[in-house]
């Protein structure tokens, strides 16, 4: 019988590798009995989903390229364009 502390470790590991069927059975049985671990597993699923799309929601306020950097990059881009043409 796994402790809750072990179950949450397995919950994460299950996202990384295929665990043996008997381990997954035990986890399922545990989730049925234990509301907290069940909730934890659902929250990890959600976090994975969010990580999958977070690059589409990058907030940019208070965090912008400096004007210096912009000028430097613009200059480089011009150089590359000229050599390409």
């Amino acid at each position: 019988m796994y402790k809750c502390k072990e179950i949450i470790e397995l919950t994460s590991q299950n996202m990384e590798t295929s665990l043996p069927w008997y381990t997954r059975m035990e986890m399922k049985a545990h989730y049925l009995m234990c509301k907290t671990c069940n909730r934890y597993a659902q929250q990890l699923q959600f976090m994975n989903k969010a990580l999958g799309v977070f690059e589409g929601h990058v907030p940019t306020e208070n965090c912008q390229l400096s004007d210096d950097a912009k000028q430097r990059i613009a200059k480089k881009m011009c150089q590359v364009k000229e050599t390409a043409e």
């Binding site: 690059e55 990058v58 907030p59 940019t60 965090c63 912008q64 390229l65 950097a69 912009k70 990059i73 613009a74 881009m77």
Partner: peptide, 11 residues
């Protein structure tokens, strides 16, 4: 650069 520079930078 003006459209996506900040987003790329933040990421």
């Amino acid at each position: 650069l003006s459209e996506y520079g900040d987003i790329l930078y933040r990421y």
